[in-house]
Design a protein around this nucleic acid. Structure first.
Lengths: 201, 201
DNA sequence: GTCTATAAAGGGATAGAC
DNA sequence: GTCTATCCCTTTATAGAC
Protein backbone atom coordinates (compact mmCIF):
# COMPACT_ATOMS: atom_id res chain seq x y z
CA UNK A 1 0.00 0.00 0.00
CA UNK A 2 2.75 2.38 0.91
CA UNK A 3 4.72 0.93 -1.99
CA UNK A 4 1.87 1.54 -4.40
CA UNK A 5 1.56 5.14 -3.43
CA UNK A 6 5.27 5.61 -3.50
CA UNK A 7 5.71 4.33 -7.05
CA UNK A 8 2.82 6.32 -8.42
CA UNK A 9 4.04 9.46 -6.73
CA UNK A 10 7.60 8.88 -7.84
CA UNK A 11 6.43 8.55 -11.43
CA UNK A 12 4.45 11.77 -11.13
CA UNK A 13 7.43 13.60 -9.69
CA UNK A 14 9.71 12.21 -12.37
CA UNK A 15 7.26 13.08 -15.14
CA UNK A 16 7.01 16.61 -13.78
CA UNK A 17 10.77 16.98 -13.84
CA UNK A 18 11.26 15.55 -17.31
CA UNK A 19 8.25 17.12 -19.00
CA UNK A 20 9.13 20.56 -17.67
CA UNK A 21 12.76 20.28 -18.65
CA UNK A 22 12.36 18.73 -22.12
CA UNK A 23 8.88 19.75 -23.14
CA UNK A 24 6.19 17.12 -23.51
CA UNK A 25 6.85 16.19 -27.13
CA UNK A 26 10.60 15.78 -26.64
CA UNK A 27 10.28 13.92 -23.35
CA UNK A 28 10.78 10.15 -23.46
CA UNK A 29 8.85 7.72 -21.28
CA UNK A 30 12.10 5.83 -20.82
CA UNK A 31 13.72 8.85 -19.25
CA UNK A 32 10.77 9.35 -16.93
CA UNK A 33 10.93 5.73 -15.85
CA UNK A 34 14.67 6.01 -15.22
CA UNK A 35 14.19 9.19 -13.22
CA UNK A 36 11.51 7.48 -11.14
CA UNK A 37 13.64 4.37 -10.67
CA UNK A 38 10.98 2.10 -12.16
CA UNK A 39 10.25 0.40 -15.47
CA UNK A 40 8.46 1.93 -18.44
CA UNK A 41 5.71 -0.66 -18.14
CA UNK A 42 4.77 0.59 -14.70
CA UNK A 43 4.12 4.01 -16.11
CA UNK A 44 1.52 2.54 -18.43
CA UNK A 45 0.12 0.47 -15.59
CA UNK A 46 -0.66 3.61 -13.61
CA UNK A 47 -1.46 6.14 -16.28
CA UNK A 48 -2.37 4.24 -19.43
CA UNK A 49 -0.41 6.36 -21.86
CA UNK A 50 2.17 9.08 -22.15
CA UNK A 51 -0.59 11.40 -23.31
CA UNK A 52 -2.69 10.83 -20.19
CA UNK A 53 0.32 11.35 -17.97
CA UNK A 54 1.14 14.57 -19.81
CA UNK A 55 -2.35 15.91 -19.20
CA UNK A 56 -2.12 15.11 -15.52
CA UNK A 57 1.23 16.89 -15.23
CA UNK A 58 -0.04 19.94 -17.07
CA UNK A 59 -3.07 20.18 -14.80
CA UNK A 60 -0.89 19.98 -11.72
CA UNK A 61 1.68 22.41 -13.09
CA UNK A 62 -0.76 25.26 -13.54
CA UNK A 63 -2.97 24.04 -10.73
CA UNK A 64 -2.24 26.55 -8.02
CA UNK A 65 -0.96 29.39 -10.18
CA UNK A 66 -4.17 31.13 -11.20
CA UNK A 67 -6.15 30.49 -8.00
CA UNK A 68 -3.44 32.05 -5.86
CA UNK A 69 -3.16 34.99 -8.19
CA UNK A 70 -6.84 35.78 -8.29
CA UNK A 71 -7.21 35.14 -4.58
CA UNK A 72 -4.93 38.09 -3.93
CA UNK A 73 -6.51 40.30 -6.59
CA UNK A 74 -9.97 39.48 -5.30
CA UNK A 75 -9.13 40.01 -1.63
CA UNK A 76 -10.18 42.91 0.56
CA UNK A 77 -6.77 44.54 0.50
CA UNK A 78 -6.38 48.00 -0.98
CA UNK A 79 -4.81 48.44 -4.40
CA UNK A 80 -1.68 49.85 -2.81
CA UNK A 81 -1.35 46.68 -0.77
CA UNK A 82 -2.38 44.22 -3.47
CA UNK A 83 0.10 45.21 -6.12
CA UNK A 84 3.24 44.76 -4.01
CA UNK A 85 1.88 41.52 -2.58
CA UNK A 86 1.19 40.08 -6.03
CA UNK A 87 4.62 41.14 -7.27
CA UNK A 88 6.42 39.66 -4.30
CA UNK A 89 4.39 36.47 -4.19
CA UNK A 90 4.77 35.70 -7.88
CA UNK A 91 8.39 36.62 -8.30
CA UNK A 92 9.16 34.24 -5.43
CA UNK A 93 6.88 31.60 -6.86
CA UNK A 94 8.54 31.73 -10.27
CA UNK A 95 12.07 32.04 -8.93
CA UNK A 96 11.73 28.61 -7.38
CA UNK A 97 10.25 27.11 -10.57
CA UNK A 98 12.59 28.15 -13.38
CA UNK A 99 11.23 25.73 -15.99
CA UNK A 100 7.55 26.36 -15.32
CA UNK A 101 6.78 29.40 -17.51
CA UNK A 102 8.53 28.07 -20.61
CA UNK A 103 6.84 24.72 -20.18
CA UNK A 104 3.37 26.20 -19.77
CA UNK A 105 3.77 28.45 -22.80
CA UNK A 106 5.01 25.55 -24.91
CA UNK A 107 2.14 23.34 -23.88
CA UNK A 108 -0.46 26.03 -24.47
CA UNK A 109 0.99 26.73 -27.87
CA UNK A 110 0.82 23.14 -29.09
CA UNK A 111 -2.23 22.07 -27.06
CA UNK A 112 -4.56 25.01 -26.53
CA UNK A 113 -7.25 22.44 -25.80
CA UNK A 114 -5.51 21.45 -22.57
CA UNK A 115 -5.80 24.81 -20.95
CA UNK A 116 -9.39 24.91 -22.03
CA UNK A 117 -9.98 21.61 -20.25
CA UNK A 118 -8.38 22.89 -17.06
CA UNK A 119 -10.55 25.97 -16.96
CA UNK A 120 -13.74 24.18 -17.92
CA UNK A 121 -14.20 23.28 -14.26
CA UNK A 122 -13.32 26.66 -12.81
CA UNK A 123 -15.12 29.74 -14.02
CA UNK A 124 -13.48 32.76 -15.68
CA UNK A 125 -11.35 35.14 -13.66
CA UNK A 126 -13.17 36.78 -10.75
CA UNK A 127 -12.38 40.43 -11.37
CA UNK A 128 -15.35 42.20 -9.79
CA UNK A 129 -13.58 43.34 -6.62
CA UNK A 130 -10.64 44.70 -8.59
CA UNK A 131 -12.96 46.40 -11.06
CA UNK A 132 -14.74 48.21 -8.25
CA UNK A 133 -11.47 49.35 -6.67
CA UNK A 134 -10.27 50.80 -9.95
CA UNK A 135 -13.57 52.55 -10.56
CA UNK A 136 -13.55 54.07 -7.10
CA UNK A 137 -10.11 55.55 -7.64
CA UNK A 138 -10.98 56.83 -11.06
CA UNK A 139 -14.11 58.46 -9.66
CA UNK A 140 -12.04 60.01 -6.88
CA UNK A 141 -9.67 61.41 -9.48
CA UNK A 142 -6.64 59.64 -8.05
CA UNK A 143 -6.20 57.23 -10.96
CA UNK A 144 -6.43 57.27 -14.74
CA UNK A 145 -9.08 55.09 -16.23
CA UNK A 146 -7.97 51.63 -17.31
CA UNK A 147 -9.94 48.53 -18.24
CA UNK A 148 -9.49 45.86 -15.58
CA UNK A 149 -8.30 43.27 -18.12
CA UNK A 150 -5.59 45.68 -19.26
CA UNK A 151 -4.56 46.33 -15.69
CA UNK A 152 -4.22 42.63 -14.95
CA UNK A 153 -2.38 41.99 -18.21
CA UNK A 154 0.11 44.78 -17.48
CA UNK A 155 0.77 43.47 -14.00
CA UNK A 156 1.19 39.86 -15.06
CA UNK A 157 3.33 40.78 -18.07
CA UNK A 158 5.82 42.68 -15.96
CA UNK A 159 6.06 39.85 -13.44
CA UNK A 160 6.16 36.77 -15.63
CA UNK A 161 7.82 37.81 -18.89
CA UNK A 162 11.44 37.83 -17.72
CA UNK A 163 11.10 34.19 -16.69
CA UNK A 164 9.57 33.28 -20.03
CA UNK A 165 12.49 34.71 -22.00
CA UNK A 166 15.19 33.92 -19.49
CA UNK A 167 17.32 31.93 -21.98
CA UNK A 168 17.38 34.88 -24.38
CA UNK A 169 17.94 37.41 -21.62
CA UNK A 170 21.07 35.74 -20.52
CA UNK A 171 22.55 36.42 -23.93
CA UNK A 172 20.94 39.58 -25.32
CA UNK A 173 21.24 41.54 -22.10
CA UNK A 174 24.23 39.54 -20.86
CA UNK A 175 22.46 38.65 -17.66
CA UNK A 176 23.63 35.21 -16.63
CA UNK A 177 23.04 32.91 -13.68
CA UNK A 178 23.52 34.90 -10.48
CA UNK A 179 22.83 38.20 -12.18
CA UNK A 180 19.39 36.96 -13.16
CA UNK A 181 18.51 36.64 -9.47
CA UNK A 182 19.77 40.16 -8.88
CA UNK A 183 17.74 41.37 -11.85
CA UNK A 184 14.58 39.83 -10.35
CA UNK A 185 15.35 41.28 -6.91
CA UNK A 186 15.53 44.69 -8.49
CA UNK A 187 12.09 44.13 -9.98
CA UNK A 188 10.68 43.08 -6.63
CA UNK A 189 11.72 46.49 -5.40
CA UNK A 190 10.67 48.61 -8.38
CA UNK A 191 7.66 47.01 -10.09
CA UNK A 192 4.99 47.98 -7.55
CA UNK A 193 5.96 51.63 -7.84
CA UNK A 194 6.16 51.37 -11.60
CA UNK A 195 2.65 49.99 -11.95
CA UNK A 196 0.94 52.24 -9.44
CA UNK A 197 2.77 55.32 -10.66
CA UNK A 198 1.85 54.60 -14.27
CA UNK A 199 -1.80 55.25 -13.52
CA UNK A 200 -1.49 58.54 -11.67
CA UNK A 201 -3.59 61.22 -13.36
CA UNK B 1 17.91 27.10 -61.73
CA UNK B 2 14.65 28.86 -61.06
CA UNK B 3 13.19 25.46 -60.23
CA UNK B 4 15.98 24.77 -57.78
CA UNK B 5 15.41 27.97 -55.97
CA UNK B 6 11.71 27.53 -56.04
CA UNK B 7 11.73 24.11 -54.42
CA UNK B 8 14.21 25.10 -51.76
CA UNK B 9 12.23 28.22 -50.95
CA UNK B 10 8.95 26.35 -50.92
CA UNK B 11 10.39 23.88 -48.43
CA UNK B 12 11.60 26.71 -46.24
CA UNK B 13 8.22 28.40 -46.33
CA UNK B 14 6.46 25.14 -45.58
CA UNK B 15 8.84 24.32 -42.75
CA UNK B 16 8.25 27.77 -41.28
CA UNK B 17 4.51 27.25 -41.35
CA UNK B 18 4.55 23.76 -39.87
CA UNK B 19 7.26 24.29 -37.27
CA UNK B 20 5.59 27.43 -35.96
CA UNK B 21 2.19 25.85 -35.82
CA UNK B 22 3.11 22.48 -34.29
CA UNK B 23 6.37 23.18 -32.54
CA UNK B 24 9.56 21.61 -33.79
CA UNK B 25 9.35 18.34 -31.86
CA UNK B 26 5.76 17.66 -32.88
CA UNK B 27 6.24 18.67 -36.51
CA UNK B 28 6.56 15.87 -39.08
CA UNK B 29 8.80 16.05 -42.11
CA UNK B 30 6.00 14.41 -44.08
CA UNK B 31 3.66 17.28 -43.30
CA UNK B 32 6.31 19.80 -44.34
CA UNK B 33 6.86 17.97 -47.63
CA UNK B 34 3.11 17.89 -48.27
CA UNK B 35 2.77 21.59 -47.49
CA UNK B 36 5.64 22.33 -49.88
CA UNK B 37 4.19 20.06 -52.57
CA UNK B 38 7.37 17.99 -52.80
CA UNK B 39 8.63 14.67 -51.52
CA UNK B 40 10.21 14.06 -48.15
CA UNK B 41 13.43 12.96 -49.80
CA UNK B 42 13.89 16.38 -51.34
CA UNK B 43 13.90 17.92 -47.93
CA UNK B 44 16.90 15.83 -46.99
CA UNK B 45 18.51 16.59 -50.30
CA UNK B 46 18.49 20.30 -49.51
CA UNK B 47 18.91 20.39 -45.76
CA UNK B 48 20.39 17.07 -44.70
CA UNK B 49 18.20 16.51 -41.66
CA UNK B 50 15.11 17.71 -39.87
CA UNK B 51 17.40 19.08 -37.16
CA UNK B 52 19.37 21.22 -39.61
CA UNK B 53 16.16 22.52 -41.16
CA UNK B 54 14.81 23.35 -37.73
CA UNK B 55 17.89 25.41 -36.93
CA UNK B 56 17.59 27.31 -40.17
CA UNK B 57 13.93 28.11 -39.49
CA UNK B 58 14.65 29.25 -35.96
CA UNK B 59 17.39 31.55 -37.18
CA UNK B 60 15.08 33.08 -39.75
CA UNK B 61 12.15 33.34 -37.36
CA UNK B 62 13.97 35.53 -34.88
CA UNK B 63 16.16 37.05 -37.55
CA UNK B 64 14.66 40.49 -37.93
CA UNK B 65 13.00 40.75 -34.56
CA UNK B 66 15.86 41.94 -32.36
CA UNK B 67 17.65 44.06 -34.97
CA UNK B 68 14.52 46.06 -35.72
CA UNK B 69 13.81 46.51 -32.05
CA UNK B 70 17.25 47.75 -31.14
CA UNK B 71 17.43 49.88 -34.25
CA UNK B 72 14.54 51.94 -32.92
CA UNK B 73 15.83 52.02 -29.35
CA UNK B 74 19.27 53.06 -30.56
CA UNK B 75 18.04 55.72 -32.97
CA UNK B 76 18.30 59.48 -32.51
CA UNK B 77 14.62 59.89 -31.66
CA UNK B 78 13.64 61.25 -28.27
CA UNK B 79 12.30 58.93 -25.59
CA UNK B 80 8.83 60.34 -26.06
CA UNK B 81 9.00 59.41 -29.73
CA UNK B 82 10.74 56.06 -29.33
CA UNK B 83 8.33 54.46 -26.92
CA UNK B 84 5.19 54.93 -29.03
CA UNK B 85 7.06 53.89 -32.15
CA UNK B 86 8.31 50.67 -30.55
CA UNK B 87 4.86 49.88 -29.20
CA UNK B 88 3.18 50.47 -32.53
CA UNK B 89 5.81 48.69 -34.60
CA UNK B 90 5.90 45.58 -32.47
CA UNK B 91 2.21 45.21 -31.83
CA UNK B 92 1.71 45.30 -35.60
CA UNK B 93 4.61 42.95 -36.17
CA UNK B 94 3.24 40.39 -33.71
CA UNK B 95 -0.37 40.79 -34.77
CA UNK B 96 0.55 39.50 -38.20
CA UNK B 97 2.56 36.59 -36.75
CA UNK B 98 0.29 34.93 -34.22
CA UNK B 99 2.35 31.75 -33.83
CA UNK B 100 5.74 33.40 -33.57
CA UNK B 101 6.00 34.21 -29.86
CA UNK B 102 4.83 30.80 -28.64
CA UNK B 103 7.15 29.09 -31.08
CA UNK B 104 10.19 31.12 -30.08
CA UNK B 105 9.58 30.59 -26.38
CA UNK B 106 9.13 26.85 -26.90
CA UNK B 107 12.32 26.57 -28.90
CA UNK B 108 14.36 28.60 -26.46
CA UNK B 109 13.06 26.51 -23.61
CA UNK B 110 14.04 23.17 -25.13
CA UNK B 111 17.09 24.40 -27.08
CA UNK B 112 18.72 27.30 -25.26
CA UNK B 113 21.83 26.54 -27.30
CA UNK B 114 20.08 27.67 -30.48
CA UNK B 115 19.54 31.21 -29.34
CA UNK B 116 23.11 31.26 -28.17
CA UNK B 117 24.23 30.28 -31.66
CA UNK B 118 22.15 33.01 -33.28
CA UNK B 119 23.64 35.71 -31.07
CA UNK B 120 27.17 34.45 -31.29
CA UNK B 121 27.57 36.37 -34.55
CA UNK B 122 25.90 39.57 -33.41
CA UNK B 123 27.08 41.29 -30.30
CA UNK B 124 24.97 42.00 -27.23
CA UNK B 125 22.21 44.60 -27.28
CA UNK B 126 23.43 48.13 -28.14
CA UNK B 127 21.93 50.10 -25.29
CA UNK B 128 24.32 53.03 -24.98
CA UNK B 129 22.09 55.61 -26.68
CA UNK B 130 19.11 54.64 -24.58
CA UNK B 131 21.22 54.63 -21.43
CA UNK B 132 22.34 58.20 -22.10
CA UNK B 133 18.81 59.39 -22.75
CA UNK B 134 17.59 57.95 -19.48
CA UNK B 135 20.51 59.44 -17.56
CA UNK B 136 19.89 62.87 -19.06
CA UNK B 137 16.28 62.83 -17.97
CA UNK B 138 17.13 61.59 -14.52
CA UNK B 139 19.73 64.34 -14.17
CA UNK B 140 17.17 66.89 -15.33
CA UNK B 141 14.77 65.65 -12.68
CA UNK B 142 12.07 64.73 -15.19
CA UNK B 143 12.36 60.98 -14.71
CA UNK B 144 12.91 58.49 -11.92
CA UNK B 145 16.06 56.48 -12.06
CA UNK B 146 15.79 53.08 -13.73
CA UNK B 147 18.40 50.66 -15.00
CA UNK B 148 18.31 50.49 -18.78
CA UNK B 149 17.90 46.70 -18.77
CA UNK B 150 14.86 47.07 -16.52
CA UNK B 151 13.43 49.73 -18.78
CA UNK B 152 13.80 47.55 -21.86
CA UNK B 153 12.40 44.53 -20.06
CA UNK B 154 9.34 46.47 -18.91
CA UNK B 155 8.70 47.76 -22.39
CA UNK B 156 9.11 44.40 -24.10
CA UNK B 157 7.08 42.58 -21.44
CA UNK B 158 4.09 44.83 -21.91
CA UNK B 159 4.24 44.49 -25.68
CA UNK B 160 4.94 40.80 -26.18
CA UNK B 161 3.40 38.99 -23.22
CA UNK B 162 -0.24 39.06 -24.36
CA UNK B 163 0.76 37.24 -27.55
CA UNK B 164 2.70 34.67 -25.60
CA UNK B 165 -0.27 33.74 -23.44
CA UNK B 166 -2.96 34.32 -26.00
CA UNK B 167 -4.40 30.79 -25.70
CA UNK B 168 -4.88 31.24 -21.97
CA UNK B 169 -6.17 34.79 -22.31
CA UNK B 170 -8.97 33.67 -24.50
CA UNK B 171 -10.25 31.54 -21.64
CA UNK B 172 -9.23 33.20 -18.38
CA UNK B 173 -10.20 36.69 -19.43
CA UNK B 174 -12.80 35.50 -21.95
CA UNK B 175 -11.15 37.39 -24.76
CA UNK B 176 -11.68 35.41 -27.93
CA UNK B 177 -10.88 35.93 -31.60
CA UNK B 178 -12.02 39.40 -32.62
CA UNK B 179 -11.89 40.71 -29.09
CA UNK B 180 -8.19 39.89 -28.95
CA UNK B 181 -7.57 42.34 -31.77
CA UNK B 182 -9.59 44.97 -29.94
CA UNK B 183 -7.60 44.22 -26.79
CA UNK B 184 -4.34 44.82 -28.65
CA UNK B 185 -5.66 48.01 -30.26
CA UNK B 186 -6.42 49.30 -26.80
CA UNK B 187 -2.82 48.60 -25.80
CA UNK B 188 -1.51 50.41 -28.85
CA UNK B 189 -3.32 53.44 -27.54
CA UNK B 190 -2.50 53.14 -23.83
CA UNK B 191 0.90 51.47 -23.41
CA UNK B 192 3.10 54.44 -24.40
CA UNK B 193 1.42 56.62 -21.80
CA UNK B 194 1.59 53.84 -19.24
CA UNK B 195 5.31 53.35 -19.63
CA UNK B 196 6.32 57.01 -19.79
CA UNK B 197 4.00 57.98 -16.98
CA UNK B 198 5.34 55.21 -14.76
CA UNK B 199 8.69 56.94 -14.57
CA UNK B 200 7.58 60.45 -13.73
CA UNK B 201 9.19 61.62 -10.50
C1' DG C 1 16.62 17.87 -59.05
C1' DT C 2 12.97 14.96 -58.02
C1' DC C 3 10.78 10.83 -57.39
C1' DT C 4 9.58 5.74 -55.37
C1' DA C 5 10.77 2.35 -52.42
C1' DT C 6 12.84 0.85 -48.42
C1' DA C 7 15.95 0.70 -44.75
C1' DA C 8 16.97 1.86 -39.96
C1' DA C 9 16.02 3.66 -35.64
C1' DG C 10 13.21 5.25 -32.22
C1' DG C 11 9.83 4.96 -28.90
C1' DG C 12 5.10 4.03 -27.07
C1' DA C 13 2.54 0.23 -25.78
C1' DT C 14 1.37 -4.71 -24.38
C1' DA C 15 1.87 -9.79 -23.01
C1' DG C 16 2.94 -12.56 -19.60
C1' DA C 17 5.93 -14.22 -15.77
C1' DC C 18 6.74 -13.53 -10.95
C1' DG D 1 2.49 -4.21 -8.16
C1' DT D 2 6.62 -4.72 -10.83
C1' DC D 3 9.56 -6.68 -14.02
C1' DT D 4 11.56 -8.61 -18.80
C1' DA D 5 10.91 -9.23 -23.32
C1' DT D 6 8.98 -7.92 -27.36
C1' DC D 7 5.77 -6.04 -30.53
C1' DC D 8 4.73 -2.77 -33.98
C1' DC D 9 3.71 1.65 -35.52
C1' DT D 10 5.72 5.99 -36.52
C1' DT D 11 9.07 8.76 -38.45
C1' DT D 12 13.58 10.00 -40.03
C1' DA D 13 16.86 9.02 -43.37
C1' DT D 14 18.99 6.77 -47.52
C1' DA D 15 19.49 4.07 -51.99
C1' DG D 16 18.85 4.20 -56.46
C1' DA D 17 16.03 4.97 -60.74
C1' DC D 18 14.69 8.60 -63.87
Amino acid sequence: MTDEKESRERILDAAHTIFLRRGTASARTQEIADEAGVNKALLHYYFGSKEALAEEIFRRAIGDFFPRFFAILGSGLSLDEKVPLVVETYLDFLSSRPYLPGYVVSEMHVHPDRIRAVFASRGPAPLDVLTRQIEERVAAGTMRHIAVEQFVMNLVSLIVYPFVVRPAMEIVLQVDGDRFDAFISERRRTLPGFVLNALRP
